[in-house]
Amino acid sequence: MVAYRAEMVVWILTATMPLVMLALWNAAAAQGPLAGFGQAEFARYFTATLVVRQLTGTWLVWELSNMVRTGSLSPQLLRPLHPLSLNLAETLAALPFRLVVLTPIVAALLVWRPDIAFLPAPSTLLLTALSTVLAFLLSWLVQGLFGMLAFWLDQSVGLFSVWFAIYALLGGYFLPLPLLPPMVRDAARWLPFQATLAAPVEILLGTNGDPLEALAVQLGWVLVAGALAAWMWRAGLRRYGAVGA
C-alpha cells in the first residue's frame, strides 16, 4: 500500500514543471516586464498553470498504449464497464489526492509572493470551472487518441511527444501566449493546444478578452476529439490482437 501511494507522489511531483518555468521567467523578467509580464504576472500565471495542470492531468496515453501492446487491455474488455470509463473514474478518484499535494505548493508560492493573491469574481470562477472541465476532457481525449494509435503502431507514445512539444510552445505551458509573435499567437487561439491549458488559465486571470469564445473553441475541439476517439476505438478493437496470455 505504501509503495502504491509513493508512486503516485512521484508522478504528481513530476507534473510540477510550471515551477521550473516560473523560476526561468522570474529571472528573465528581473530587468523589467516582457510583453507586459513582470515578475508578479509570471508568478501568477505559472501558479495558475500549475493548478490547472494538476486538475486536468492524465496518463491515458501511456496506460492505453501499454495495455494495447502487452494485451493487458483484454481483461478490461471483458468486464461490463468500458475500459475508458474505468480510466475516467480512476482519474477523477485521484483528484482529492492531487489537491492534497497541490495545497502546500500553492501556499508556499503565496508566502513567497503575497502580491499574486487575488479574489476572482464568482462568474469568473464559474467560467474557469467550465473551462477546466473542457480542458481536462480534451487532454484526456487527445491522450486517448494517441494511446489508441497503439492498435496500429508500435511507437504511439513517441508521436504523442511531438504533440507535447507543440503544446509546450503553443499551449501556454512553457510561456504565456502573449509572449508569442502576434501571428502565431492569433493562430494558436483556434488550435487545440491552448484549449487544454492556456484557456482556463487566462479565464481565471482575467487576461482573456473573450472567455465565451475560448469556451466555444474548447467545446468544438472536445466534440471533434470525442467523435474521432469513438471511431478509432471501434476500428482499433477490430484490429486488436489480444496478445499475451
Binding site: 493487458s72 483484454s74 481483461p75 474488455l77 471483458l78 468486464r79 461490463p80 464497464l81 499475451g244 496470455a245
Partner: peptide, 18 residues
C-alpha cells in the same frame, strides 16, 4: 461485447488478469 453478455461470461487467462 454487450454488457449484458459480459455479465454472463468470464474468461480466465493467466494469473495477471483482474
Amino acid at each position: 461485447r454487450n454488457p449484458d453478455y459480459l455479465r454472463r461470461i468470464t474468461l480466465v487467462m493467466g494469473q495477471k488478469q483482474q
